[in-house]
Amino acid sequence: MAVISGLGLLLVTLAAFSLFSMKAPKGSEAMSGMASAAVATFLVEAVHRYISGDLLGVSFLGEVGSTAGSLGGVAAAIMVPIMMGVNPVYAVVAGAALGGYGILPGFIAGYVVGFVAPLLEKYLPTGLDVIVGALCVAPLARGIAYISDPVVNAAMEHIGSMITAATDQSPALMGFMLGGLMKMICTSPLSSMALTAMLGLTGLPMGIACIACVGGAFTNGMIFKMLKLGDKSSTIAVMVEPLTQAHIVTKHPIPIYGSNFFGGGIAGIGASLLGIVCNAPGTASPIPGLIAPFAFNSPVKVILALAIGVAGGILAGYVGGHFFKKHYAESDAHMEG
């Protein structure tokens, strides 16, 4: 029941975020802003607080990481409106007012400001728009965060705890399912960095997500190379940041997502069996996922997990590439006939 509940809640969450990203006004832009906020805060925290600070003993960099990690809500409230096209002054005003709040309340406040700020700028007289607008946006943003914080955080923490409980009870199974799903999300327009940041995933589930994103990157590379999707630069780009090749991914979703699920799943099994943990939520992406686990595990375990993930990703890409290459050839022959 723990596994069923964990996977069920994860799938419901994915469906909700997917609908928001695809159907909500400027939903995709808002989710991109959330992902950028996760990079600016959680990735910096993971590297500088835990590696540069705790592991290497550089106290200054450790302080940099701790400070960045505490500003997730501020960063989200700034980046989300900016990605939605708002005047940066209003975005910074919203962010400055959200000190002390987490990334999800910051996301919600930033999304609302993304629609309110342009109206203030449109209807207020020139010269007063920035001053009066700033005085209105600041309390609005913090008020939204104050109201939404207990509800959304409780809901996301519950979902995150259920996923963690399911992973602890059935590590290999959840490693495969969670790793596969996270890599599919990593390649889709719905950012895995934004999702894991919202859920506040830590521990083994976050470790699985990190390693799966790295292993699945090689699945993407194999699929792009074997099916001749784009050119060489496209193959490199999809491995580093899949969203840069969204125009290709959306045209060939079945071979890419199907292979991704198995590539991420194999990597997830390796991470779960080795007990890779990561306490930096929001780092589920190829480059952050490669770096962050070193802050919380022995380097030997991380390197072994990455090796398993890369091997599994290449294997899944190779098998998927051959399977779908044959299918594509048959489809072309049928069309010519």
Rank of each mutant, 00 (worst) to 15 (best):
I211V: 11
C213V: 01
A96M: 08
M198L: 15
C210W: 00
I108C: 02
S59D: 08
L178F: 15
M156A: 10
A30L: 07
L7E: 05
F261R: 12
I303Y: 00
T250V: 08
G175A: 11
A2I: 02
L274H: 12
L55P: 00
M206C: 03
G53M: 13
P118M: 02
P118E: 01
F261Y: 13
E45N: 14
G106P: 07
S36R: 11
I144L: 15
K232Y: 01
A246K: 10
V214L: 08
A109V: 04
A295P: 01
I211D: 02
A138E: 12
P189K: 07
K326F: 08
G264K: 11
C278G: 10
L9M: 04
A329L: 12
M198R: 00
P25C: 04
G317E: 06
G102D: 14
A217F: 06
F261D: 08
G321D: 12
M222A: 09
C210R: 00
T164W: 06
A40F: 04
L128T: 07
V277F: 05
V137L: 10
L273A: 03
I159S: 11
G69Y: 12
N87Y: 13
H247T: 13
Q245H: 10
Q245S: 14
P286I: 09
K232L: 04
G282R: 07
D54T: 03
T244P: 05
K325Y: 08
F218K: 00
G270H: 04
G309W: 09
G57R: 06
L227H: 07
M162C: 09
A76S: 13
L273I: 15
E330V: 09
L243S: 09
V319E: 06
C186P: 01
G268D: 13
F17D: 05
T167S: 15
L201I: 11
L304Q: 05
A94F: 13
P125N: 04
E157Q: 10
I4Y: 02
A138T: 11
P299Q: 05
A134K: 06
A145R: 03
F107R: 01
Q169V: 02
S191R: 07
I51L: 04
L98N: 14
